[in-house]
Design a protein around this nucleic acid. Structure first.
Length: 441
RNA sequence: GCCGCGGUAGUAUAGCCUGGCCUAGUAUGCGGGCCUGUCAAGCCCGUGACCCGGGUUCAAAUCCCGGCCGCGGCGCCA
């Protein structure tokens, strides 16, 4: 390896002071004070200052240092000494090795990239990503996905990998991207829904998946992407959908608790200056109660039996915080008319379902519910939705040979990250966002 | 998909409403120079822009129309 250690690994290591180190990274800043040059190197873990002095440092190093540009990729070597730099230590440089240097002026300065509009930042995302604050978003995202895997693996869930090229859309209504599959029409999966049910029915019982999903909806909002990452779970032998919510809640408790305790992630939370609240209890209120709360406490009228709009969700987020001291709130028993056909309906009140959403800081981040596992009921549901059972034959067949009662949920990774950090636009939480206008870079 | 707002150097902005004093200002970057402890380094010099097309007018960055692109709200959703 050209590089022996991350910058962060060299900082705060008193035992290394006085020894020779090699540091590789990007030139973050050059402060040329006449015969002394200060070179600030950056990698994803931090900054370190190198000092080159004319007359003192080897002539070759001085010459090379003079040729550096911002964002040149270099390795410097020298003694690690206590210095007057912010980091407490600095490198007395005796060798500068330039690995790559910009061939054109920078269209965006990483250090200042946040001053640019998002569109420009996304056009030059490889530079924007070097902004330490932006880097941290993706370190957190990786950590969240890791926590998801860790939590559910620990609860006996099996990770699955389902097809992303599929023959039919999952939910009626939501638009899919068609692809030409050897001359036939196929689609990009908008959800692993059918296949995670398949895996449960196939005897894996408890499964999870982390994967991309695709939605051909022309949304122009700060919280939609046409390609995002879904954290999915599905589990069999549930008594009712509260079992599903228990597992969702368990994950969020674990996540938020770790967020406040994990030393590796604390600096990120601090950088964004966000408060992480651990709820004592996560309220579960039926949507019918939510209608009442919205009307009585906020004067907001949602037509009975209709879905919540985004303002309603924001207000319920406020309600949860005010009344229950919780950033999280489950809304349950969604109306049948706004839920997909595979959702289990309440036997005595078939206009309502065992479907729920979880709002985090007033934004829907999870959707889930108990699924209909009875073949005949599924047929009824399809008929009720005016859907043709023929188009769902491959799915219906799963249910012909023994399917346990089951349910599950899907969580939006980017939305979770966005809400944790208080980002204003979901594109910030996507490395290379896809939206109705953008397919590059 | 419907509705609204916007497009000025590489980047971010001022100017636009109330057309002329705009040879388009500022910051940062970039190029050059000075400076032996900077840390948003500083100082001096230079570089570089009105999205495209049409119209109104003596005169358009500025007003009008069309296009393209961007941003946001709603619907819908994670």
């Amino acid at each position: 390896m050209l590089k022996e250690a991350f910058i962060g690994e060299l900082l705060g290591r008193d035992d290394l002071i006085g020894s020779r180190v090699r540091v590789c990274g990007w030139v973050h800043n050059i402060r040329d004070v006449g015969r002394i040059k200060f070179i600030v190197l950056r990698d994803r873990t931090g900054f370190i200052q190198g000092v080159v002095k004319a007359g003192e440092s080897p002539g070759e190093a001085v010459e090379e240092a003079g040729r550096l540009k911002l964002e040149s990729v270099v390795c410097i070597e020298g003694l690690l000494v206590r210095g007057r730099a912010r980091e407490g230590v600095e490198v007395k440089v005796d060798s500068v090795e330039v690995l790559s240097t910009p061939v054109e002026p920078l269209p965006l300065e990483p250090d200042d990239s946040l001053k640019s509009i998002l569109a420009t930042r996304l056009n030059y995302r490889w530079l924007d990503l070097r902004n330490p604050r932006v880097t941290k978003i993706f370190l957190l995202e990786a950590w969240v996905a890791g926590k998801f895997r860790e939590y559910y693996s620990g609860e006996g869930f099996v990770e699955i990998f389902t097809p992303k090229i599929v023959a039919a859309g999952t939910e009626s209504g939501a638009e899919v991207f068609p692809v030409i599959y050897f001359g036939r029409e196929a689609f990009l999966a908008q959800s692993p829904q059918f296949y995670k049910q398949f895996a449960v029915i196939g005897g894996l019982e408890r499964v999870f998946e982390v994967g991309p999903v695709f939605r051909a909806e022309p949304h122009h909002t700060t919280r939609h992407l046409t390609e995002y990452h879904s954290l999915d779970i599905e589990l069999g032998f549930i008594e009712d959908y509260n079992d599903v919510m228990d597992y969702v809640e368990g994950f969020f408790r674990n996540l938020l608790t770790s967020l406040t305790r994990d030393e590796t992630i604390k600096p990120i939370v601090e950088e964004f200056n966000v408060e992480v609240r651990l709820p004592r209890e996560v309220p579960r209120i039926s949507i019918r109660d939510a209608y009442k709360i919205l009307e009585e406490e906020y004067g907001k009228k949602i037509p009975y039996g209709e879905d919540l709009d985004s303002e309603g969700e924001r207000l319920l987020g406020d309600y949860a915080r005010r009344v229950h001291d919780s950033d999280l709130i489950f809304i349950t028993e969604y109306p049948w008319k706004v839920r997909p056909f595979y959702t289990m309906r309440i036997e005595e009140e078939p206009e309502w379902t065992y479907g729920f959403d979880l709002l985090y800081k007033g934004l829907e981040v999870v959707t889930g519910g108990q699924r209909e596992h009875r073949y005949s009921k599924l047929l009824e549901n399809l008929e009720d939705k005016g859907l043709n059972p023929e188009s769902f034959k491959f799915y219906l067949d799963f249910f012909k040979h023994g399917a346990p009662p089951h349910g599950g949920a899907g969580m939006g990774l980017e939305r979770i990250v966005m809400q944790i950090l208080g980002l204003e636009n979901i594109r910030e939480a996507r490395l290379l966002p896809r939206d109705p206008e953008r397919v590059t870079p």
